[in-house]
Nucleic acid binder design. Structure first.
Length: 423
RNA sequence: GGAGAGUUGGCAGAGUGGUCGAAUGCGGCAGUCUUGAAAACUGUUUUACUUAACGGUAACGGGGGUUCGAAUCCCUCACUCUCCGCCA
């Protein structure tokens, strides 16, 4: 959610920047400013009436104390009109504030100047490419066949137990999955992140804090009985650790890492190219979250991108880094880098991580602030990234390392899996 | 699931209708003293909105009500704790 003061101060720059997202927010922003002026006028009037009411009440109290009940009841009559009027103003104020919020909730974050114009992922800017695409042997097959051949994951069994998109990992498939989780966590801990194991269900306040609510309600599984949501990413519970918190500037940087399963309804987003592990309703992910001083947050973003690059290097997977264009940029993000690995049998780039700086957009909703010396509290910057999402990493590992004699496990994972080959 | 008790400032904890935004203690910050530190002493210590400023308004779990006036009374919702039951 954008800050009202920022809109007041730089409406035109914001409107201009939002055009990169192909959004015309001029009318909305103008409306917000008009409503804000009305809000201030209304509040001022209400405050004045309340002030008068308060002082009359005080007088009445004193009159009662000194036994002048008659004078007091005379004053009482004068309060009626003030009460009624201030009550009306309070209602009006609430309506104005609701109207302002209704607009603010649907204005996305202002993109960083680096964000290129564009409509879809076709227009993302590839800023780096690393590693060599492997040459596969002639009998190479996509991961969904490897998974069957080696009995690593059973989709049909998942369908029986739950439904489509809830796979059952088994045998070496399960162990490889667990190895990856531990590897990612250990690497993050080495990089200075504190590990957390957060709840997998969150309340509506948390969903609102990180921006999933109200915009993306339909993408989360909702337990209506208890009004809790299954987390679509660990970002939600981890970032919400800091909801309603005032930090000290010396607390930065705050670095958390957490492994959680992630649950996404993905309503209506199933197509031909989402076979196998490419898209699931439940998947595992290790997420890194950082809170940063506003002056440092873009250095932090770079640091996080480099951390993920390091993971992919160690796994010996070819990858590229894409800077998301305005049309592809998430609602809450100011700048996002997607990491994509090349999955050699599908011959496709698969998104395995999305690393974003939200600047103050989430912090404003979260009321996440920090104090610098004796200054007033200011909003902190929040960032997060997948490090990494498991299914597509597994798909790429299986496809890229397949040979006639089986699938080779990347060296760095062998201490975690306890085996170096799937055959 | 049954019964009961609670929710006040960073924490602990007073306050049951009228200078209560809120005693007191702890913690934090600043100062005095000291070569330095500790101790002691003194002062200070919430946030939001609004105002050029002085100031004003709001907030004692959330929402609503009674009243001239609510932290204090009433209703309602949420949460927490204790005991019992059940249980990984």
């Amino acid at each position: 959610m954008l800050e009202l003061t920022r809109i007041r101060e730089s409406k035109d720059q914001i409107a201009e920047a939002l055009k990169v997202r192909n959004i015309d927010a001029d009318a909305d922003l103008a409306k917000v400013i008009a409503l804000d002026e009305e809000r201030r006028a209304t509040q001022h009037q209400m405050d004045t009436e309340l002030q008068e009411l308060n002082s009359l009440s005080k007088e009445i109290g004193e009159l009662f104390k000194s036994g002048k009940a008659a004078d007091a009841s005379e004053l009482k009559d004068k309060t009626a009109a003030l009460k009624e009027n201030s009550g009306k103003l309070k209602t009006k104020l609430q309506e104005i504030e609701d109207a302002i919020n209704e607009i603010l909730y649907r204005i996305p974050n202002v993109p960083n100047p680096l964000v290129p114009k564009g409509n879809s992922d076709q227009d993302n800017e590839i800023v780096a490419e690393h590693g060599l695409k492997p040459t596969l042997y002639s009998g190479a097959v996509p991961h969904w066949e490897l998974i069957k051949d080696y009995n690593l994951i059973d989709f049909e069994l998942g369908v029986k137990i739950t439904g489509a998109g809830f796979p059952v990992y088994r045998g070496k498939g399960a162990r490889l999955q667990r190895a990856l989780i531990n590897f990612f966590l250990d690497e993050a801990i080495k990089a200075g992140y504190e590990e957390v194991i957060p709840p997998h269900l969150v309340n509506a306040d948390s969903g609102f804090g990180t921006g999933q609510l109200p915009d993306k309600e339909g993408q989360m599984y909702h337990c209506t009985e208890d009004n809790l949501y299954l987390i679509p990413t660990a970002e939600v519970p981890i970032t919400n650790i800091y909801r309603n918190v005032v930090l000290k500037d010396t607390d930065f940087p705050i670095k958390n890492v957490g492994y959680t399963p992630c649950f996404r309804r993905e309503a209506g987003s199933w197509g031909s190219h989402v076979r196998g592990l490419n898209r699931l309703h439940q998947f595992d992910k290790v997420e890194i979250v950082q809170l940063s001083h506003p002056d440092k947050s873009y250095d932090t973003l770079t640091e996080m991108v480099n951390h993920v690059k390091g993971l992919l290097d160690k796994l010996e997977l070819p990858y590229r880094v894409a800077r998301l264009c305005g049309g592809d940029l998430g609602f809450t993000s100011a700048l996002t880098y997607d990491m994509e690995v090349f999955s050699a049998a599908q011959e496709r780039w698969l998104e395995v991580s999305s690393i974003s700086n939200f600047e103050t957009f989430q912090a404003n909703r979260l009321k996440l602030r920090f104090k610098e010396g004796s200054d007033k509290p200011k909003l902190a910057h929040t960032l997060n990234g997948s490090a990494l999402a498991l299914p597509r990493i597994m798909a790429a590992i299986l496809e890229n390392n397949q040979t006639e004699n089986g699938i080779n496990i990347p060296k760095v994972l062998v201490p975690y899996t306890g085996f170096d080959k799937i055959n």
